[in-house]
Structure formats: structure tokens, C-alpha cells
């Protein structure tokens, strides 16, 4: 119990974890702050202790298009140079004392140029992976004109994981126009010019450098071992002795947890006294 409590205290004081939202080809230097971080009182800031880059994301799908597995290929800087690491969702990997967990959240990021009259904006839009072939992913972007640009990412086939992007402009709930958007082919939806500049994948990497988990689970292990030893030990002993006169004497003894067997003792005494 003491070991477990020490582990809990250590984790509470030194917890340092958070996540990074990364695009394929993107790198982050050591010291980059993690988002959605959880920090203990002794930790100033949750940050990357080693630089890393996301080389690519590989997503496998089931036949109906649901996500089957997510694998991120990362390059991580270590003391002995750069190493490439394959991180698979649900399989945490420790590099240089830091645990990296590939999140199952993944999707496409679309770099787009939006043009209206003489104004041009270039933005990146993050859409989640479509849930299945029948269930696209959506993202609504409010425009300054009061219109809404709705992007729809449709999975084309489950084998390749390729997705098609459809853009729609709505004004006051009415559809102004809708068009499939293809890279290198500018399109116009109402008064809005839309051009897809680039497409790649994004994903989330969880980074955790909290010490103390080993101590905590070691404590649980010791507690479990102790419980097993207690459970497996014989809790009561009965010694039967034949007296020289021919009488038989039974000695009953609860090795531990005597109070737990009080009722049994009472029943035995009653039986010995001639009860049932």
C-alpha cells in the first residue's frame, strides 16, 4: 500500500503529458509546448524533450470503410542520432524515457485558397476520417459574408483510403451551390472561388513523460500478492485428538480473521454442547 501511495504521490507531483496535432511532413523541435497538457505542481511546462517529425500516416480500413488501424511513422531525435519509429494506435512505445502513444484520431487536412471579389485567403481545414463509406466527415466554416462553407470528406474506397472533397456554400439555410473540389482545378460556388492547393493526413500524438507509473503498479502488484497469500493460507485449523479414555477431542482455531468466523465458532460450540 505504501508503495502504491508513493507512486500516486510521485505521479501527482510530476505528471507531464499532453498531445501534438501533426500533419504529414511536419516537424517539432525539442521544447515545443504540448496542448491539452496535464501537469503536476512540480512541472513548469509540458513540452517535448526531443525533436520529432511525422513522416507519414497509414490508415487501414475495414471493407465498409470504418477505421481498422492507424500507424504513424515518426523520426525522433535521440542522443545517438535520429531513429525512425512506427507507432501503432493502442501500442505505446517508449523512446528515451518518454512514452509516445499514437492516437486513433486521424483525418485529412485540406490546404485551400478561398477567393471573394478581390480578397484571397489561404487556410488549412482539418477534417476527421470519414466514419465509413456511407458516413462522410463534415466541417462547417462560417464566412464573413454570413454564409457557411460546408466541407464534406467522402471516402472513395476502403482499400486505398482515398477521400474526395465536396464544398457547399449555404446562405440562411439555403444551398447556394455545391461542387467537388479537385487539386489544381479552381472552382466557383456562387460568388466564392475555391481552390484545393494540397491534401495530406493529420493525426494526434500523445506524449507522456510522467515518472512513477512503475512504482504505482508495483504497489498494486505487492497488494495483489499479499491478498493472494492471505487468501491461499489456511484460515482455520481443526485438530482431532483421541483421549486415553476413548473420548475424541476437536480443537478449532481460526489462524487469522478470527472475527470473520465468529458465527462458525458459535455454531460449533452449540453443536458440541448438544445443539444441532
Amino acid at each position: 500500500m505504501l508503495i502504491a501511495l508513493a507512486g500516486i504521490t510521485l505521479i501527482w507531483l510530476t505528471q507531464a503529458s499532453g498531445l501534438l496535432i501533426l500533419i504529414e511532413g511536419e516537424s517539432r523541435a525539442a521544447g515545443t509546448a504540448l496542448v491539452s497538457d496535464e501537469r503536476g505542481p512540480l512541472v513548469q511546462e509540458s513540452a517535448l524533450s526531443a525533436g520529432l517529425a511525422l513522416d507519414r500516416v497509414e490508415v487501414e480500413h475495414w471493407d465498409n470503410g470504418e477505421t481498422r488501424s492507424v500507424r504513424g511513422v515518426y523520426t525522433i531525435e535521440t542522443d545517438s542520432g535520429q531513429i525512425q519509429v512506427d507507432l501503432v494506435a493502442n501500442e505505446p512505445t517508449t523512446v528515451g524515457g518518454v512514452r509516445y502513444i499514437q492516437d486513433s484520431r486521424v483525418g485529412h487536412v485540406y490546404a485551400m485558397r478561398l477567393t471573394r471579389e478581390d480578397r484571397t485567403d489561404e487556410q488549412e481545414f482539418f477534417l476527421a476520417e470519414p466514419e465509413s463509406l456511407e458516413q462522410p466527415a463534415y466541417l462547417d466554416i462560417p464566412l464573413q459574408t454570413g454564409e457557411v462553407l460546408r466541407l464534406k470528406s467522402v471516402l472513395l474506397d476502403s482499400a486505398s483510403g482515398a477521400a474526395n472533397l465536396v464544398a457547399r456554400v449555404e446562405r440562411s439555410g439555403l444551398v447556394v451551390g455545391e461542387q467537388a473540389v479537385v487539386e489544381g482545378e479552381p472552382a466557383a460556388i456562387g460568388e466564392l472561388g475555391v481552390e484545393l492547393l494540397d491534401t495530406c493526413r493529420w493525426t494526434i500524438l500523445v506524449v507522456d513523460s510522467t515518472p512513477g507509473y512503475g512504482l504505482l503498479f508495483g504497489g498494486f502488484g505487492v497488494i495483489s500478492l499479499g491478498a493472494a497469500l492471505l487468501y491461499l493460507a489456511t484460515p482455520r485449523e481443526v485438530t482431532i485428538t483421541r483421549e486415553p479414555e476413548g473420548d475424541v477431542r476437536a480443537d478449532w482455531h481460526a489462524v487469522r480473521f478470527g472475527r470473520l468466523y465468529e458465527r462458525e465458532e458459535t455454531l460449533l460450540r452449540a453443536a458440541a454442547a448438544g445443539g444441532k
Binding site: S17, N90, E91, I101, D103, V206, F220
Partner: peptide, 16 residues
């Protein structure tokens, strides 16, 4: 014990 095992699985799956 089920909760404990579940928390270990949750860490692998979601990082907490």
C-alpha cells in the same frame, strides 16, 4: 482488478 486492467488498456488506447 477489472478496473485496473481497464485503466492499463485505456492508457494504451487514449494515453490516460
Amino acid at each position: 482488478a477489472g478496473m485496473l486492467a481497464g485503466s492499463v488498456w485505456a492508457y494504451s488506447a487514449w494515453g490516460r
